[in-house]
Nucleic acid binder design. Structure first.
Lengths: 188, 188
DNA sequence: GTCTATAGGCTGATAGAC
DNA sequence: GTCTATCAGCCTATAGAC
């Protein structure tokens, strides 16, 4: 996806239309312009994400299990919607320059979910007390970076600049899950 | 910095020159065009980073201490050179579209440093055996994201969308150091 | 070294035929 | 709904005066 690879300014309507096999004018007709298309993509991806995350809306599951599920859902999200991480990273860096106001609550809700899991863990005694905002950045940042950095990583691997195998997303998810399980456990 | 906030395509030479208080033509004259300026900035920042990281080039320090130092150095790097994380994140996402070939070895060297610390920790018995590439992504991704996401985070805090205080970089560094110390310790 | 003026190319959007 | 043709605006780079 061009918005993902090139950013809002780097992706031209002409190139987007060509890759989609449609006419340039169709984008204005169906999405009210470049910005409308951009917002439509992010809205679709965020709604998919929120629906998957609503699995966690129950008190029955333990917080440490919820955190592991949260990481797994985000891993799955990035595999299925690989554009969301890159588009959101770009928005984060630009202060949301191209971010429509209707998308902002989605971001807030994801942070609130991490906050809720950590608070539950503290109440239950399954997770040690940590700063929710800092932990949110570690969890989301690790995940977003792993998936977003794929283009350069793949290139460096292909060109033999780093001598590693292309990493498996599932393995990254389990590595992060284990680090968090050990690192956030009540007593160590 | 405009490359940082807007990306290579979003930042116009006109705007860069205006903010720097110089004439548009001066950028072509001194840096051989927009791309030359971009490469000059990244070269300067990377060289500064490598010099700071060379502190870790000794076997005397324990690997778990080195890892904490690595995180602290990167935290300091992002505070002093806040453009490096955002510019590199954008390059990572675009497969290095605007990345001059002379900058690629810098990226490899940073990964090799993480690899060396983890290998030392395993030999010494101070760190448990983990995948170096995955761990590299967790450490660098957490740090890059925390600092790169500042524009949107600050905006959401200022607008009262999330009810938190602007986070202190030093506190983020210590939170990450503690998570890694507990999460990567030999026995838990 | 520094500036203004301008060339030459590309961009997003749309009018209007079908 | 879909296309082609085109416009007005913006971009980078540079020629040439000082």
């Amino acid at each position: 996806m061009l918005f993902s690879e090139m950013g809002f300014d780097g992706a031209t309507v002409d190139a987007i239309a060509r890759r989609a096999g449609v006419n340039k004018a169709m984008i204005s007709y169906h999405f009210a312009g470049k910005h409308g298309l951009y917002t439509a993509i992010l809205t679709r991806d965020f709604e998919w994400a929120q629906e998957r995350l609503s699995e966690l809306d129950t008190g029955i599951i333990r917080a440490d299990t919820k955190l592991a599920r949260f990481v797994a859902i985000f891993g799955d999200l990035h595999v299925r919607h690989p554009h969301l991480s890159t588009m959101m990273l770009r928005e984060a860096m630009s202060g949301g320059r191209h971010l429509d106001a209707i998308l902002v609550p989605h971001i807030r809700r994801i942070f609130e979910r991490v906050q809720a899991i950590l608070a539950q863990g503290e109440r239950e005694g399954t997770l040690r007390r940590v700063d929710p905002l800092m932990t949110h950045h570690i969890v989301l940042g690790s995940l977003a970076f792993f998936f977003a950095a794929r283009p350069l990583r793949d290139r460096m691997i292909a060109e033999g600049i780093v001598a590693v195998e292309p990493p498996d997303p599932a393995r990254f998810v389990s590595t992060l899950q284990e680090l968090l399980a050990r690192g956030l456990a009540k007593e160590s």
